[in-house]
């Protein structure tokens, strides 16, 4: 199939950026990123610089790939990362517009590559359980209700790709942050420092320059792991309770 690609090109964070248009010959069994490989190989063959895009596992779990395809983070399929989109979902002659995640907190590095270290800093601010190696008791010492563990897992499946931020009209990181807060809050092991954690993580999230949640729900709809905005409600509740009840100001 013959496709027209309009791809965002941007030298660095300071550059204004623009769209380049390419023609590419794709095969229906190709993955989206393999189609991008074909484009890049042809650019290299012409001695031109290939389109910079990030990718790694290509099986939908590492969270590296990030393209806004025709206005939708990770493209048109529900619960699917960019690397798992296949060209059979497109038709001969289609025009595809490819843009990077756009958010102040995710500055563009080059072309479609953005800097997502803000997410790392949010985790560093408190997205963990404070135990050292070797301090653990036996794994079966605390029973956890099967359903609760499953709900924790639902939240813990987040791959940190940032599609929630990309999809949100406010570029808010609430779904990402709340997924970690929820995962740890649901596990008895994580409940101990829950109050401190939720305050610290939200403080960091705010400092990173993400927008504020207005309950649009686009994050949930575009999340490749289909993480629920129930997690955001849980975090809101926890935060208010934590601020009102804790004796220490954070």
């Amino acid at each position: 199939m013959k496709l027209t690609l309009k791809v965002w090109r941007q030298k660095n964070a300071q550059d204004k950026g623009h769209f380049d248009t390419f023609k590419v010959e794709a095969h229906e069994h190709m993955s989206f990123l393999e189609m991008m490989d074909v484009l890049n190989e042809s650019l290299i063959a012409e001695g031109k610089e290939p389109v910079a895009f990030e990718h790694d596992c290509r099986e939908g779990i590492c969270g590296t790939c990030n393209m806004v395809i025709n206005g939708r983070p990770h493209g048109p399929m529900q619960g699917t990362t960019t690397c798992q989109i296949h060209m059979r979902h497109y038709n001969d002659g289609d025009t595809i517009v490819i843009e990077p995640w756009r958010a102040k907190a995710f500055p563009v590095i080059k072309d479609l590559v953005v800097d997502r270290t803000a997410f790392d800093r949010i985790i560093q601010s408190g997205g963990y359980i404070s135990i050292n190696t070797g301090q653990a008791q036996d794994a079966n010492a605390i029973p956890i209700e099967k359903d609760t563990a499953a709900r924790a897992m639902d939240a813990a499946e987040c791959i940190g790709c940032g599609a929630c931020v990309a999809a949100c009209p406010n570029a808010s990181a609430m779904l990402f942050t709340s997924a970690k807060v929820s995962h740890l809050a649901l596990m008895p092991q994580g409940r101990v420092e829950h109050s401190r954690r939720v305050q610290a993580m939200i403080k960091q999230m705010d400092e990173e320059g993400f927008g504020m949640c207005s309950n649009v729900g686009a994050c949930e709809a575009e999340c490749p792991k289909e993480i629920s905005i129930d997690n955001i409600a849980r975090m809101n509740r926890s935060y208010v309770a934590s601020v009102l009840a804790s004796e220490k100001a954070v």
Partner: peptide, 18 residues
């Protein structure tokens, strides 16, 4: 504040997910 959190808009705007 939310507007400033995204300085560049997307070229293609879809309302598909909200």
């Amino acid at each position: 504040k939310n507007r400033s959190a995204r300085r560049t808009r997307y070229a293609v705007a879809t309302g598909a997910s909200s």
